[in-house]
């Protein structure tokens, strides 16, 4: 069987593909996501419910399927996001490191190429991200935060839906390793 004839989005569990991305995409897409996160909610406050840097972290981690690359990507994106805020650097960094590691580990074991799997994985990792973030922000930095299941579930579903669409758009930048 010729591997090059297998469609990218229908990779089976036995034939899990590893992808790589060009340097401009590797740097540009996360920066664009962070910029989007900083810029758009000022004009459209509803958009603050979305976490575009997180979605990009999950996408890159799942596509590369390498835990080390995934956690480093998550750490880098999270730290840059932290740098723009007034609080100590590392809160988002730690949360996204965990998500990057988890998503890439999951991606190397399961087929996460179809829409349903992506929706569930994104919802799950959004909640993981929020849980780690909440723990660090409250436990270490002593920020006054309240956990709201309703808000986080709603935000998780919203992010999962947007993420699913976003992943298919970003699939175009994939290159077979």
């Amino acid at each position: 069987m010729n591997l090059t004839s297998v469609p990218i989005t229908y990779t089976s569990g036995e034939q899990i593909e590893v992808y790589r991305f060009s340097v401009p995409v590797t740097i540009g897409v996360p920066l664009l996501a962070i910029f989007f996160q900083a810029f758009v909610p000022r004009r459209l406050p509803f958009f603050s419910i979305f976490d575009f840097p997180l979605l990009v972290t999950i996408f890159f981690a799942m596509a590369r399927r390498n835990p080390i690359t995934g956690l480093l990507t998550g750490a880098a994106i999270g730290l840059v996001q932290d740098m723009l805020g007034p609080y100590p650097i590392g809160i988002y960094g730690i949360a996204k490191t965990v998500v990057g590691y988890g998503a890439s580990s999951l991606g190397s074991k399961l087929d996460v190429e179809n829409a349903g799997a992506r929706l569930l994985v994104t919802l799950g990792f959004y909640l993981v991200h929020q849980a780690v973030f909440f723990t660090v922000a409250r436990g270490m930095v002593n920020l006054n935060m309240n956990w709201s299941w309703s808000h986080d579930l709603l935000a998780g579903v919203a992010n999962a839906m947007v993420g699913t669409v976003l992943y298919f758009a970003l699939d175009r930048f994939k290159q077979r390793a």
Partner: peptide, 14 residues
């Protein structure tokens, strides 16, 4: 105002 802090946690702008 040219941007925010890219975080739902903090309320700050640039």
């Amino acid at each position: 105002v040219i941007g925010s802090c890219a975080s739902d946690l903090s309320r700050c702008v640039y």
